[in-house]
């Protein structure tokens, strides 16, 4: 009874669309000849498409770099604010959180202008500092550039959650350490960090799933620098471009299902880790 509203919403917005995607992925619709049942043919196409797998490896690499960096920076600032060693802490916490309130599209457009090769302020500054002509959108730098943008967007959000978690640590624990003469660094790294570990594991998981679904930033950047972002740059871009760009909706559906399975596997891994840590008892 009490779960009924939840179940209805779950069915309407999760199970039905997923089921429809699976159903769709089993058909092939052609411009000439119409729609026919084609079994697993679309899955074979996706699984043998190196564009798709290139995208999967790219977002995994992206996640391995971006997620730890974001959380490390976020933890650093959360700990600094929590320790109360800076003045105007509330003001700066708000400032750090602001990028999260900026929609991804706006952020990507803004950074595209800032980093524009030859014309943006950043490449001009680097040039005058003697770094020569830096092209943030070249095939070598495009991924670090996206990492930079995403860290900018998401650090404040992670910081806020970590800050709340740090604040919930009982004061007497740290007070005892302070009285014992433990330096601040030790208190943060040896006492507080282990205590917020469950929060960090959860943030790793959330950030990881977000990274695997990377879409907004590369798709906006591709409008500025089409050569840097191929149509299968990330798996979600591959799904979008096969379904909408080429009109192969069924193939797009199959790719989406494969991507969902990959994310499901990652989630299961994270669940296993958290279980081992003694959560969900």
């Amino acid at each position: 009874m009490f779960v009924a509203p939840h179940l209805v919403i779950l069915t309407l917005f999760m199970i039905v669309p997923t089921g429809y995607a699976v159903y769709d992925s089993l058909f092939t619709s052609k411009l000439v000849g119409g729609t026919r049942f084609s079994g697993l043919a679309n899955y074979r196409t996706v699984l043998s498409s190196h564009e798709f797998w290139d995208g999967v490896w790219r977002v995994l690499l992206f996640a391995v770099v971006q997620v730890p960096l974001t959380i490390a920076i976020a933890f650093f600032f959360a700990a600094v604010f929590d320790a109360g060693v800076v003045r105007f802490g509330r003001f700066f916490r708000t400032v750090f959180f602001i990028p999260f309130a900026v929609p991804g599209v706006v952020a990507a457009v803004m950074w595209s202008f800032l980093l524009l090769p030859g014309f943006g302020p950043y490449s001009k500054a680097l040039k005058s500092l003697g770094f020569g002509h830096v092209d943030f959108f070249s095939s070598k730098l495009i991924l670090p550039t996206i990492v930079l943008i995403v860290i900018w967007e998401w650090t404040g959000y992670n910081m806020t959650i970590l800050y709340a978690s740090l604040k919930s640590i009982p004061r007497d624990v740290t007070e005892a350490a302070v009285i014992d003469g433990a330096p601040l660094r030790t208190i943060i790294l040896r006492m507080k960090l282990p205590m917020v570990r469950p929060t960090i594991v959860m943030l790793v998981f959330i950030n990881m799933v977000g990274a695997l679904q990377l879409f907004t930033e590369p798709s906006i950047l591709s409008a500025f620098q089409p050569q840097a972002v191929s149509y299968g740059f990330t798996p979600t871009l591959y799904v979008y471009n096969t379904a909408v760009g080429s009109g192969e909706y069924n193939l797009g559906a199959a790719a989406a299902v494969v991507l969902a399975l990959i994310i499901g596997l990652v989630s299961l891994g994270a669940f296993a880790v958290r279980r081992r840590n003694g959560e969900f008892r």
């Binding site: 991804g104 599209v105 977000g210 679904q213 990377l214 879409f215 907004t216 590369p218 798709s219 906006i220 591709s222 409008a223 089409p226 972002v229 149509y231 979600t236 871009l237 979008y240 471009n241 909408v244 760009g245």
Partner: peptide
């Protein structure tokens, strides 16, 4: 996270 790559990209092409 939902932005049409196709539309953005082809804005330039088209």
């Amino acid at each position: 996270m939902r932005t049409p790559h196709g539309a953005g990209g082809s804005a330039r092409r088209a």
